[in-house]
């Protein structure tokens, strides 16, 4: 399998303080990678760097063999990188249906979109996505009226509507009930293979459900990488989480 995302020696520094510190990170096509690490490890910052929200201090970021370092957010998104925010972000005044319509962003030219009727666009994709994330009954509801879990699903659904090759999910199950988390892991297992996913997570039960390989980040660097059992038993990992029962309590 080909490497789809490749971070080479990526550093992000605020003054002296390196939030991401010479980070190397490779993800293969079709893989579901979990990115773990204690709070402040630099996970969200890493996603910011990949998606262009922040500019790297040094290093290169390659996507599908192309250098995307420092490009503008929308240009990176258009190349096939989708992102779910840590704090769920949906369009609150729009209906769920309209949220999906906006997410169907094949053509982003304003003048082109002046001659398209919003509600016609991407109907087929909407059907497919709703089949995956649910929300059938909620299509006419305002985005701002959804429950927390539903908001998370809507945003996941929006990112799916884009149909990106690479999906970056920042804490998709945060604030979800156990049952909602279960449903979410089913969604992710369906996506695996067809899409490449990088999932930042705290919920270890969830990680066990979905992950093939996990990368453990600490102080902006890779601390350990590999299948769950190996990372879990790594002495370096135990040291970082001293006094706890391993990474299970990382959250």
């Amino acid at each position: 399998m080909a490497v789809i995302l490749d971070l080479q020696d990526v550093t992000k520094a605020y003054d002296e303080y390196k939030v991401v510190d010479g980070f190397n990170f490779q993800v293969e096509e079709g893989e579901l990678r979990c990115l773990l690490g204690p709070n402040g490890a630099g996970k969200t910052t890493t996603i910011d760097l990949i998606t262009g929200r922040q500019k790297a201090t040094s290093g290169t970021i390659m996507f599908k063999g192309r250098d995307i370092t420092g490009q503008r957010e929308d240009k990176i998104a258009k190349q096939g990188v989708g992102r779910k925010f840590q704090v769920p972000a949906v369009f609150k005044e729009l209906t769920v249906r309209e949220n999906f319509q906006v997410a169907f962003s094949k053509n982003t030219d304003p003048f082109h979109n002046m001659i398209r009727l919003g509600r016609r666009d991407g109907r087929e994709r909407l059907r497919q996505v709703v089949e995956i994330v649910g929300l059938q009954e909620r299509l006419e509801e305002q985005g701002g009226n959804l429950s927390h879990g539903e908001t998370q699903w809507l945003e996941i659904g929006m990112v799916l509507t884009q149909n990106p090759q690479l999906l970056l999910m920042d804490e998709p199950t945060a604030g979800m009930t156990e049952q909602e988390t279960q449903q979410t892991s089913e969604i992710f297992n369906r996506l695996k293979g067809e899409h490449t996913l990088v999932v930042v997570e705290h919920d270890m039960a969830f990680v066990r459900e979905i992950a093939d390989v996990i990368t453990l980040m600490h102080l902006g660097k890779t601390l350990a990488e590999g299948p769950m059992e190996i990372v879990e038993n790594d002495p370096k990992v135990r040291e970082v989480y001293l006094g706890t029962e391993g990474i299970t309590d990382a959250a």
């Binding site: 925010f85 309209e98 962003s105 919003g118 929006m158």
Partner: peptide
């Protein structure tokens, strides 16, 4: 009522979200 109209309202609600969906 066109898609343009929906997109500008989306941008009003959350410009950042719209940007990461690929909109300039």
């Amino acid at each position: 009522q066109t898609k343009f109209g929906t997109i500008v309202q989306a941008i009003r609600d959350d410009p950042e979200r719209a940007r990461f969906l690929g909109y300039n």
